[in-house]
């Protein structure tokens, strides 16, 4: 089924078209959410919300746009909202819940390849460090960097998703890399790993 056909059938409420859409774009959406949330379960939850929103608001979709651009935009917005809500929730969360969540995320990172636990542990530490550095970036830089790195999107595509000019995206990614470098150098000096 072509993109246009999927959209047409979705407008008619076809379940088959919806299944096709999910099969085709599931990885794209989950991957984008994961890049911003760094947690598989959360990424899948938000990805489900993205598809539900798509199903419900398919009438708003402009025929001249690409489905992927639309999906990227919804995935980014939903993920950012999830992060904001989570931040607010943390204020009311008990300390035990926070420790449990941290343990869970560490466990998820460590339980990878058990053949080389030392390598795994180092990788998980690097992963945590990188996630913290990415999360500390300003929102626009974070989104541009994530789309570029996790989804290999070209600057032009990122510009379409973020509704910015290509030069703005270029500048955002340049600044994101500079900020990341600063954080990584600081950590290297302090011997975090």
């Amino acid at each position: 089924m072509s993109e246009a056909e999927i959209i047409d059938k979705l407008r008619e409420g076809s379940e088959k078209a919806f299944r096709e859409l999910v099969d085709q774009y599931q990885q794209l959406v989950v991957n984008t959410c994961f890049g911003l949330l760094h947690n598989t379960e959360d990424a899948e939850d938000v990805a489900q919300d993205v598809f539900i929103e798509v199903f419900r608001s398919v009438d708003k979709f402009r025929a001249d746009a690409k489905i992927s651009t639309w999906l990227y935009r919804i995935a980014v917005n939903r993920s950012l909202n999830f992060i904001r809500d989570n931040k607010r929730r943390k204020w009311f969360q008990s300390f035990d819940d926070l420790v449990e969540a941290k343990k869970k995320s560490l466990g998820e990172l460590v339980s990878g390849n058990t053949e080389n636990p030392e390598f795994d542990l180092e990788n998980s530490q690097r992963s945590l460090l990188l996630h913290e550095a990415i999360d500390a970036l300003p929102e626009n830089q974070r989104v541009a960097f994530t789309l570029n790195k996790y989804e290999d999107l070209a600057y032009k595509e990122i510009a379409e998703v973020m509704k910015l000019s290509v030069s703005s995206v270029e500048s955002l990614i340049h600044r994101a890399k500079k900020n990341l470098q600063k954080k990584l150098y600081y950590c290297y000096k302090k011997k975090c790993i």
């Binding site: 299944r19 999910v22 099969d23 599931q26 990885q27 989950v30 991957n31 994961f34 598989t40 990424a43 899948e44 990805a47 489900q48 990788n123 690097r126 992963s127 460090l129 990188l130 790195k149 996790y150 470098q181 990584l184 150098y185 290297y188 790993i193």
Partner: peptide, 23 residues
């Protein structure tokens, strides 16, 4: 080398496995 290894994590994380029960 340190930075190269840290940035290399992005490549490992890039494509999380597709959950077969997602749909």
């Amino acid at each position: 080398n340190d930075m190269k290894r840290t940035l290399g994590v992005l490549q490992i994380e890039k494509s999380p496995e597709v959950n077969p029960y997602f749909y």
